[in-house]
């Protein structure tokens, strides 16, 4: 089965999930909605054949859920216990947003994203900068890995036990390479006509399909259920 979602649907998904996780879940019904919206992006990860990340996310989220419900009571105390409960609470709280963001960043091509933003009439400045941010996280990770390798080879990983040195040794080379990559990136982008005065066309044809509408309706319905049952039924 191949389902290709429109970037606009994905952005809507991010919006809804981040809004919902900020409202706390207090009843089993609200928890059910929250857990349900967490597993939707996981399902899409499986559809996109990203089995490893889907597996890891499911594992971590389920573990944190179990810990939260089994371990946590209002009287829990002691350092390890408060650490564990605080930790699992944070995971349960922020994991859904993380999963959705991961799914969107990993499965959206930059040109799709750009033309979707253009269709929504977002100013160019925000679009381009956001696209660069999205594209840049993997680059930073890669560069950081190389820097760590180079340091390990010379035995500098711990910076002589000095925290300021440890930060300096990692950050300065990272900044150097990022600035250079940035220059190359802008040269490449200008060659492709970014920043020109004419409206850019795109090879990607974006259309909201049945799947998109179904998802949008489902998320809207879930939000309404959540808000209604949290604020009006009590």
């Amino acid at each position: 089965m191949k389902v290709k979602l429109d970037p606009r649907t994905k952005l809507y998904m991010i919006l809804i999930v981040s809004a919902l996780i900020m409202l706390s879940a207090t009843t089993p019904f609200l928890w059910a909605i929250r857990i349900f919206i967490t597993f939707i992006p996981i399902a899409f990860l499986i559809v996109e054949k990203r089995y490893t990340s889907a597996f890891v996310f499911t594992g971590a989220y389920t573990l944190a859920l179990i810990m939260t419900f089994v371990l946590v009571t209002d009287e829990s105390s002691g350092f390890l216990k408060s650490f564990l409960t605080g930790y699992s609470g944070i995971v349960v709280q922020f994991m859904p947003a993380l999963i959705v963001a991961w799914y969107v960043v990993r499965t959206t091509k930059i040109d799709e994203f750009m033309s979707a933003m253009q269709k929504m009439h977002i100013p160019d400045g925000i679009t381009i900068s956001l696209a660069v941010v999205m594209r840049f996280f993997p680059t930073i990770k890669e560069e950081y890995g190389s820097i760590c390798d180079a340091m390990k080879m010379r035995g500098l990983s711990l910076g002589g036990g000095n925290v300021a040195k440890m930060v300096e040794y990692r950050m300065i080379p990272l900044l150097f390479s990022c600035v250079n990559i940035g220059d190359e990136l802008s040269a490449a982008a200008i060659t492709r006509g970014l920043g020109g005065t004419v409206k850019r066309s795109s090879i990607e044809k974006l259309r909201l399909t049945v799947h998109d509408w179904m998802l949008i309706m489902m998320f809207s319905a879930l939000t309404i259920c959540f808000v209604y049952s949290k604020y009006f039924k009590a």
Binding site: D124, G125, I128, S129, L130, A131, V132, V133, F136, F137, I140, M171, L174, L175, C178, V179, I181, G182, L185, S186, A189, I190, L194, G195
Partner: peptide, 20 residues
């Protein structure tokens, strides 16, 4: 006016700042 190069600079430094 801001050019594409400026936007890319903004994007890069936002990404770094966010990683920090």
């Amino acid at each position: 006016k801001l050019t594409a190069k400026d936007f890319i600079t903004i994007g890069i430094f936002t990404a770094i700042w966010f990683v920090v």
